[in-house]
Design a protein around this nucleic acid. Structure first.
Lengths: 190, 190, 190, 190
DNA sequence: AATGAATGAGTATTCATTCAT
DNA sequence: CATGAATGAATACTCATTCAT
């Protein structure tokens, strides 16, 4: 579905994410989205089939943005530790710069909307990431565990750090990041 | 004058949590809760002021159940590693045995409902847990980091494991747990 | 129906009238009345059959208070002009001293609740008043018109004056009253 | 895009006024209005913000109809007595021909809804009326009193007469009107 | 493509009243 | 007598969605 007016689509996108973070899924409505986007409710339906379609497409869109950011600057030549470091750094930066997007992902992920998705929808986005870590596992620089587990030791502490950042601790982020990286590396490295 | 019926309150409690896990916050409604609890919608309002009050009270109740379970069998005489192990084991067991409760916590935590709470509401529940880990930090058995960070390295991998369990991998839980414990301990121990 | 606790009945009475003046008939409810009277909703039903019964009884009660006040100090020996003067003065005083009661009467009178009443309910209260004015009509001191009309020329301007008073014009009431009396007297006297 | 349907708005208008006179403010509801107007309750909300908005707009609309009717056929060349006579006649005719409208005004005026209005909303409607009577006061044909008071001596007896008419005394209206006019004129003329 | 109007079905909540104690 | 609990029915209002233009 291609539409001339990408601005309108963007307005729907932004308004929805803002509203979800302000009022939550329980108080989100198509007319509120429309009002904030300065559109008629009917207009949203020329871009999306229905509310669920909107939310799912939004999720996939933002999730892909995240996955792309995570891998920025990573390539085959780097060693596992470097990759791990950059991956964690990228993740943190995405969360710090796109608070609304990230918190939307968190809400969506925790919700039963997730059941509407199948693995095939998101797995490809993280294929490369898994490949990098699996290489580390097989070459012995990482512990012998599932890549998913290894990655989660890198990812979740960053989520925590980002949430601290949202609550106002701006100053010590850099130092905290280095600490977290060292803990995560101790956890996963052979 | 009739007495308030604890059975009814329990029915509200159970129905709400079930529904949240089935349909999510966005499609939860007081009348659906009432219907499932075999009550009139009006009856809910003799137990809770309004929808928000119900959800917040539910959250605090379940959260306390979790916090209590986490500390089960832990006492001062145990060393830090043992405490860490039991804490992680307890957490996993709570999640495995109370899927609905735990997933409700996850959804609530990710939602803007959290803004309705202040620290004072939940902090006391985890006071002892923090104390145990702080002791480990100050006596050198744990790395020099904030207790919150240390704890998160123990807690989040368990969350991941529980979610795998929910998806049907019953057989390998024990072995996976041991693996996770070792990774977490590598992350946090001095 | 006699009840031991006249205080409770009084609390119902006062709360109802206050609420009607604050929120109007449309937002009056039995539970609001109960809450303000510090009673259980059920208690009101030991004093009154239902909401309509409560309102009607209240109206008749207050209406009788008004009718009694109007005639205070009036007797057969006074001439028509004096009676008219005292009647108007009494009416004004009642309205000034019992704003809530009076405004309740005004609301009730304008509402379809009035259809629930028959003449027989209120007519007796004003029998004497009519008799005094009818005497004036038959002895030629008043114009030859129905007593009701004559009385209304005395009563409504007082209502107007009371409403001005409610809005804050305290100083000139006395002088305004004298003016109004002279106009009314010019209207009705032969 | 459909156009707003003036017929629907009219149906809301009529249904509301009918219902208020049948059941009163206390039993008026948006769904009753909708049912009588053959509309969905939701449709009312495309024409009015909420219930209060509907009632207030209705009041202002009907009040203006009244104010316009009152002045019909009055102009500067007429003398004060003629103006007074026509004003009273017009008022009576409006009340006789528009019972529902008028009784709605009476109920609204007595209710706390009036507090939602400010003088500025209705004062302009009666500016001309006041000007005519003030002219009479300053040229000595009327007594030296506030125009508001003078007018009330003309208006309220007419209200009384209309209410008698509503109760079925059709025959003597003309004669009664002449009598009332003479009493009112005696009251207000110098 | 875009949109305000329209709506049946739903929302959270309150109602008048009765029940059980 | 008094009352908090309980409720079916109602409340004002909003929902996701479709219609007509």
């Amino acid at each position: 579905m291609r539409h001339k007016d990408e601005k309108k689509n963007q307005a729907i996108f932004d308004s929805t994410i803002q509203l979800i973070n302000e009022v939550g899924f329980s108080d989100l409505s198509m007319s509120k989205i429309a009002k904030r986007a300065n559109l008629s409710p009917a207009t949203i339906y020329t871009y999306y089939e229905n509310k669920e379609d909107l939310l799912v497409k939004l999720y996939l869109d933002v999730k892909e943005k995240l996955s792309r950011s995570m891998l920025h600057g990573i390539h085959e030549e780097l060693d596992t530790k470097e990759i791990c470091y950059i991956f964690m750094k990228n993740s943190l930066e995405f969360m710090m710069e796109n608070k609304d997007w990230f918190l939307f992902l968190e809400q969506f992920t925790a919700s039963p909307f997730m059941n509407k998705l199948c693995m095939a929808d998101t797995a490809p986005m993280f294929e490369n990431l898994y490949r990098y870590f699996e290489r580390g596992i097989s070459n012995g620089s990482l512990k012998n565990a599932k890549a998913e587990l290894i990655i989660s030791y890198c990812y979740f502490p960053i989520v925590q750090l980002a949430k601290e950042y949202y609550e106002g601790m701006y100053t010590t982020i850099e130092k905290e990041f280095e600490l977290i990286f060292s803990l995560s590396w101790d956890a996963i490295s052979q």
